[in-house]
């Protein structure tokens, strides 16, 4: 073992030869400097890699968006040699806490799931070691309205069928997640006679459970299951977002009745998943300004737009200001909704 291990750097060198050339200067600079303050003229530029925290495991929606942005951002919207390093830090409370409690120096940012962050804060105050409203908001990459889906062979053709049905079952991911909240809000608003099974790990597991017949319906994001809708495995019954949240590049969604059309205006937009990019509270203004700019440029970059198209990931970019307003609104909504759900 000793020999293999001693030798491994040498062999690994083959793999990392190209990488090393790129990395070596970084390591050297990283060792020496640790300044967050920036230069004298009030502007700031990163001098080493930026950590990007994703509070979920690799492979899901938040992870995919993060990696897409990170790639384009470091390839043209940051100083040469500065990379964005995506770090997956599940479970949710830990990931969010580490975003909130990091040094506000611009070298730790992350993607924040809303309204899960605020819902957790209200439901689990012991665990949620953050205050959602205090994050430094950098922008938003996507706004994901929820959809009520049924498996393709389901007897339920419309949302009315679902409402009329008795003793039905839903499946969802962990309690307190945005999807689970959307599901509960739906059951409540439509007064469904439904029970929920929690604990699925990710979208694929939710879909498989429904396809197996373990659940009659489920509520999930409109942008997460494009493949399964297009392949005809599942059918959308109702869109829970508002009209202006409809992503334009998702064709099948245009024909799905919205909650407003179905006669549930209260439900429309009640729970919408926002994918927000944040930094720790009290980020110095020059740093925030720089990162907001870099993020906005990245999301407007042709390369990113093409990537999103190819990856089947609709994007709804918003500026920091708009995002802050959205977040404030969601906090208000959730402070009302979450206690209600807990009672019901």
């Amino acid at each position: 073992m000793s020999r293999t291990a001693l030798r491994s750097p040498r062999r690994r060198r083959a793999t990392a030869a190209a990488a090393l050339a790129l990395v070596a200067p970084l390591v050297l600079t990283a060792c020496g400097e640790d300044s967050a303050a920036g230069s004298d003229d009030g502007t700031w530029e990163p001098e080493r890699d930026i950590d990007w925290i994703v509070p979920y495991t690799p492979g899901g929606g938040f992870d995919t968006y993060s990696r897409g942005i990170a790639e384009v951002m470091q390839n043209g919207h940051l100083p040469d040699g500065v990379n964005v390093v995506v770090r997956n830090s599940p479970p949710l409370p830990q990931g969010i806490s580490s975003m909130f409690n990091a040094e506000p120096d611009g070298y730790t940012i992350g993607i924040l799931p809303m309204p899960a962050a605020i819902a957790q804060e209200i439901q689990e105050p012991d665990l949620a070691q953050w205050t959602t409203s205090e994050f430094t908001v950098l922008g938003q990459v996507d706004e994901n309205g929820y959809v009520v889906y049924v498996p393709a062979d389901s007897p339920f053709e419309t949302i009315e069928d679902l409402i009329a049905a008795e003793d039905i079952r839903a499946i969802t991911v962990e309690e307190g997640s945005s999807s689970a909240l959307a599901g509960l809000a739906t059951i409540r608003a439509l007064d469904l006679d439904a029970d929920v099974t929690y604990g699925a790990e990710g979208s694929a597991e939710v879909v498989t459970a429904a396809l197996r017949g373990d659940a009659d319906f489920f509520v999930y994001g409109s942008t997460d299951l494009v493949g399964f809708v297009e392949s005809g495995d599942i059918r959308p019954l109702m869109y829970l977002g508002t009209e202006d949240q409809l992503p334009e590049n998702v064709d099948w969604l245009q024909d799905v009745p919205t909650a407003e059309e179905a006669g549930f205006p209260d439900l429309a937009g009640a729970v919408t998943e926002l994918r927000v990019i944040v930094a720790p509270p009290d980020l110095p203004e020059p740093v925030a300004e720089y990162l907001r700019g870099a993020l906005a440029d990245t999301m407007a970059d042709e390369e990113f737009v093409t990537w999103a198209e190819e990856a089947g990931r609709p994007i709804v970019p918003r500026t920091a200001e708009e995002t802050e307003a959205n977040i404030a609104e969601q906090i208000e909504q959730m402070e009302e909704l979450v206690p209600q759900l807990a009672d019901g």
Partner: peptide
């Protein structure tokens, strides 16, 4: 075929596929 990672390693490979614009799953 389903985009359901059969193991932790496949989960990362699937993530990487998505990065490259290949969507694992029924299609």
């Amino acid at each position: 075929a389903f985009g359901i990672p059969g193991s932790a390693d496949w989960a990362i490979v699937l993530g990487a596929m998505i990065m490259h614009g290949i969507t694992p799953g029924p299609n």
